[in-house]
Computed example of a mutant assay.
Amino acid sequence: MKRLKSQRGFTLIEMLIVMLIITVLIAIAIPNVSKQTSAVDEKGCKAFVQMVQGQVESFRMDEKKVPTLEELVSEGYLKTGETDCPNGEVVSISVEGVVTSAKP
C-alpha cells in the first residue's frame, strides 16, 4: 500500500487546465481549416477549367471544330459527370472555344 501512496499522478485541476488548452487550440484551428477548404475548391476549379480548355484544343485539332461539353464527353475527352467544377460552378464553352466557369 505504501507504494501506491508514494506515486504521484495528475490532479483534477491539472487535467481540466490541459483540456481547456486543447479546446482553445481546436477553436483556433477550425476556422482556418474551413478557409483553406474554400481556397482549395477555388484553385481546383481553375485547374479543372484549364484541363477542359486543353481538351477543347485537342478536340479542335482532331475534329476541326469547337466542341460542346456533350461532345467532349461522348467522344471520350472528358469522363461522364466531369462537367462541373469541384466547388459546384458550371463550366461552359463559348462559340470561340474559350472555357469559363460560373456559379449556377
Rank of each mutant, 00 (worst) to 15 (best):
V52D: 02
V33S: 08
D62R: 15
K43D: 03
P86M: 04
G9Q: 13
S92I: 07
V52Q: 04
L25E: 04
S6H: 02
A27P: 00
E70L: 09
K79F: 10
N32D: 05
P104K: 15
V52W: 00
V99A: 02
L4M: 06
I30Y: 09
T11S: 15
S101H: 01
K5A: 09
A27N: 11
K103N: 12
S94D: 08
E14M: 07
N87P: 02
L25P: 05
V56R: 06
V95C: 00
E96H: 04
M15P: 06
V52F: 03
V49H: 06
S92R: 11
V98K: 12
K79A: 15
M61K: 15
K35F: 09
L20C: 15
V66H: 04
T68R: 03
E63S: 12
S94F: 04
K64S: 14
K65S: 13
S74C: 05
T83Y: 08
K64I: 07
M51D: 12
G88W: 03
D62E: 14
M61N: 15
E57S: 15
Q55M: 14
Q50L: 09
F10Q: 13
P104M: 09
K5R: 10
K46V: 05
E96V: 07
V49I: 12
V90T: 14
V95G: 01
Y77D: 09
T11C: 10
I22G: 10
E63W: 10
G54Y: 09
G76P: 12
V24A: 15
V24D: 02
V56I: 08
T37Y: 04
M1D: 13
A47C: 02
V91M: 07
M15H: 05
V90S: 14
T11A: 09
T80L: 10
V24F: 13
P104N: 10
G76V: 10
M1F: 12
F59P: 05
V33P: 00
D84K: 13
Q55L: 11
L72H: 04
F48D: 04
E89G: 03
V95M: 03
V49A: 07
K5V: 08
